[in-house]
Computed example of a mutant assay.
Amino acid sequence: MSDFAAVADFVVVYVAEAHPTDGWAMSGGMSMDIRQHRCLEERLAAAEMLALHDIPCPVLVDTMDNGAARAYAAMPDRLYIVLDGVCVYKGGPGPHGYHPEEVRDWLQNFSG
């Protein structure tokens, strides 16, 4: 990301938990007990746990009506490039459609 700091701002938008321990939890490897968010305070607390993992950009939090997740089809995870309010790159849904190298290539071509 630092390679493109002059041409792009990076953010993570934390939406509804993809694998809550009281829902569709993944077996093994879950190091955090995150339940489905019932209120904004719980979602903010979960996002704070994410931010503790040295995320090198701001972590924003979706509202409880999941407006950002719906607008960007962000579940479970997805990469976007928004330029002047227009979506110019929409990655596939994760985990199989998650290709950060495509974002790098797009930014390289844009700034190059």
Rank of each mutant, 00 (worst) to 15 (best):
P58Q: 12
A16N: 14
D84W: 02
R70T: 12
G23R: 00
F10K: 01
A46C: 03
K90Y: 02
E48F: 03
V15W: 02
A68G: 04
V61M: 12
P93T: 14
A71V: 08
V88D: 06
W24E: 10
H99F: 04
M26N: 07
G29I: 02
F4E: 11
V86Y: 05
I81R: 08
L83W: 04
D33F: 00
A25Q: 11
E102I: 00
A51K: 14
D22T: 06
L60I: 03
L83S: 06
I81A: 03
N66E: 15
E101F: 08
R78C: 09
R70F: 11
R78Y: 11
M32H: 12
L52P: 00
D77R: 15
E101K: 13
G94T: 08
P93V: 10
F4M: 01
D84Q: 10
N109R: 14
G91N: 10
G112R: 07
D77H: 13
I81D: 07
D22Y: 03
Q36R: 15
D77M: 10
A5Y: 03
Y89L: 15
R104P: 00
A74G: 13
N109K: 12
D62Q: 02
D33S: 07
M49I: 14
V59A: 05
P95F: 10
V103Q: 07
P20W: 01
H53Q: 15
L107F: 02
R70D: 15
L107W: 04
V82I: 15
R43N: 07
Y72W: 09
R43W: 08
H19R: 01
R43G: 05
G85P: 04
D65G: 03
E101H: 12
E101G: 10
V15D: 06
K90P: 01
Y80M: 13
M1Q: 14
I34T: 05
Q108A: 14
V61L: 10
F110S: 00
M64N: 04
I81Q: 08
M49Y: 06
T63I: 02
R70K: 15
Y89K: 05
D62K: 04
G91P: 07
A71R: 14
V7Y: 00
V12E: 09
D22A: 03
V61N: 04
L50C: 09
V12W: 06
D54M: 08
E101C: 03
T63F: 04
F4P: 00
M26I: 11
E101P: 00
V15N: 12
A25W: 01
C87L: 09
H99N: 06
R70C: 09
V12P: 03
H19T: 00
G28Y: 06
F4C: 05
A71E: 10
R78V: 08
R38I: 03
I34L: 15
G94R: 06
Y89S: 06
N109G: 11
P100D: 11
D54S: 11
P56A: 02
S2E: 13
D105I: 02
V11F: 14
M1P: 03
V103R: 09
G28M: 03
V82D: 05
C87V: 15
Y80T: 08
A74F: 05
L79S: 08
M64T: 04
G29C: 06
M26L: 15
S27L: 12
F10E: 01
M64K: 02
P93H: 13
M64F: 01
A74I: 02
A69Y: 02
I81E: 08
V86Q: 12
H96K: 11
A45W: 10
G97S: 07
L40C: 00
A71S: 14
R78S: 13
